[in-house]
Design a protein around this nucleic acid. Structure first.
Lengths: 250, 250
DNA sequence: GAGCATTTGTGCGTATGTATG
DNA sequence: ACATACATACGCACAAATGCT
């Protein structure tokens, strides 16, 4: 770069006017991003530079940046800098939701990684959802799904162990849930209900999803049934809200 | 008060062990809440008390509390204190989604308040969704919907003005969207698609939803069509994620 | 309404830790 | 090893909202 900083208005702030300084900074930066003065993916000035520009303490800049990150406008990386956020992926939720199809439809490369498989007795609430008696064995599989190598969703799947004895072995071999179920004699299944909420992620979730802790996750809970109506899978999934948008087709 | 604080384990922290102090505090409080040591709705100790208990600076306690609030476990009120979070409302999304029916099904009292009605030319993206030509007049109605007096969702509705000339007047009189559309000759309509994301709220959204700024909102974008398939309404809604859970029925 | 104590919110200055390149 | 840049933590001061007198 031959010339000065990008977006170099000094932007003086109104002190003691009822609006917090950090909020004025957040709004200024937000406007500059929206105006395209800093394009998606581009790096923002460092906290030190911003605190100089606005003549405030670095803490005050950090507060503004945290807000922007939580709102999905920027991404902060430890030791590297802050960057303007990029694209989002459309993820269709419907009776026939399958992860890989969903990702391929968007011209991205799907990938699945099984993080953990365990067998444990069903808790009361889970047993009821699965249509089992409490304490019956359940296979719990934790799986991270990615698109083009970037984490998109972290899913915890619960299967009735009695019905699918070889499921754990199958999943260890091939991380596709639908392939594993097909091999267990369930070539087709359908999603009954999905519950959706949002919250901030736990540290583990943030880590696995490679997402900041101040960015929300979309949380879904889904029940899948076979053509006869028997429950084959109860899934608790956490989507990186900054990278996906769920599409519900009625 | 005659006796000591509730939940009075001093809970010493591990310093310089790789885990941030604020996170240890957050985990301790989270565990105590989960264990029911502080029941839903109950008040937590003040920041000053907590910083004394954990022997840390008040900022450090505040960081932990912010995290808990963002995760939906506590609610912080300026000048009053912090409280353990309470119940959530199930909100069904489906082809026949109607706010008041939805709320009554949960045995709560629905209420709607029109905040703003305006007519303006359609932006490119909106025009396409509504099936109009760009620049055609659109009625924009902003509406806050409540259950038992507590804000649940903030919706921005967009109607083709040419088709519904008296809609603004009708809504000013009665905040029910379905009633207004019925009076305009659309007794029935159906939801086509819904897009769902999550992000932190803007200050205005947080204010209107009476929600903290560090708690996410669920954002939906829906398209409603009449029985002939013509688009009657494009809605952008923001739900208080701490108070609702969206239920998608496939 | 005025005044006051309590409690959360904002901001500064400083120091040190930790990840990245 | 070193510089850069973000992360955590302390201490202090004052602002703003609330509730009580």
């Amino acid at each position: 770069m031959t010339d000065g900083a990008p977006g170099s208005l000094p932007a003086s702030l109104a002190r003691r006017e009822g609006v917090a300084l950090w909020r004025q900074i957040q709004q200024t930066l937000e406007a500059e991003i929206a105006a395209g003065r800093v394009p998606p993916g581009a790096r923002l000035p460092t906290e030190a530079e911003l605190s100089a520009r606005f003549s405030v303490n670095r803490h005050t800049v950090r507060r503004a940046m945290e807000e922007l990150e939580g709102r999905g406008l920027v991404r902060i990386e430890h030791g590297r800098g802050s960057f303007v956020a990029e694209d989002v992926l459309d993820y269709r939720l419907g009776p026939r939701t399958r992860f890989s199809e969903n990702i391929r439809r968007e011209n991205r490369e799907p990938e699945g990684r099984i993080l953990r498989i365990a067998e444990m007795p069903a808790e009361a609430a889970l047993a009821e959802q699965l249509g089992l008696r409490r304490g019956r064995p359940v296979i719990v599989a934790e799986r991270l799904a990615l698109a083009d190598g970037r984490p998109v969703v972290l899913g915890t799947h619960h299967f009735p162990a009695a019905r699918f004895p070889q499921l754990a072995a199958l999943l260890a071999d091939n991380p596709s849930i639908s392939a594993a179920l097909a091999a267990c004699g369930v070539p087709d299944y359908r999603r009954l209900v999905t519950r959706v909420t949002a919250r901030l992620p736990t540290p583990e979730e943030a880590e696995l999803l490679q997402q900041s802790r101040s960015r929300p996750v979309l949380v879904t809970e889904a029940v899948n049934v076979d053509p006869e109506g028997a429950v084959v899978d109860v899934t608790h999934a956490r989507y990186a809200a900054g990278r996906v948008q769920l599409i519900v087709e009625s």
